[in-house]
Amino acid sequence: MSALLQASRVTFQRQGEDVFEATDLTLNAGQATVILGPNGSGKTTLLRLLAGILKPASGTLERSARTAFLGHLPALKGELTCRENLDFLARFHGAGTLNSSKALARVGLAGLGLRPARALSAGQKRRLGLAGLLVSPRPIWLLDEPYASLDDAGCRLVDTLLEGHLADGGTVALSTHQHKPQLAQGFQTLQVSPARRAEVA
């Protein structure tokens, strides 16, 4: 198995204090990683760090493939239609084999291509965000709470997309605290622990 992303002893500091304990993580092709931890333990921060949005305070981080990050924010333009949003992502990140209409159909939004993204429900916006992962080939997926605001069918859809992505030689790291992914390939888990605060005597 080839490592697509390798992080060793990474930390991130906010106002001079570590957010979480130094973390080691290797994302191998075809393997999923579930990041667990209580609220405020730094799961989102770790994912943003792995994505390259934040710079680690110490430790090393190596990515050998293009990365996609799906966060709490939808990263969509409400004024643009669903298809325009996806077309933009394909042009911005480089187009893949799946065009916008097919990607919409894959996430269960077939026929909504001309609807402005702001007119979608929260769950549909999540689905559109997932479609954004499909329109341009990026082997490393970093998903922050991908199951949030999705119904049961939506959660199964995420699992199906993840299985397909892993089978194509991609890798995924996701954070979750309610729904655990059910993948044919299984997954490794990573527990994020908040850094111990120095007690003031």
Binding site: G52, H72, L73, P74, A75, K77
Partner: peptide
Amino acid sequence: DGTLEQWWLGH
């Protein structure tokens, strides 16, 4: 809307 942080993921 989160599109700005995606700038750091482009090539």
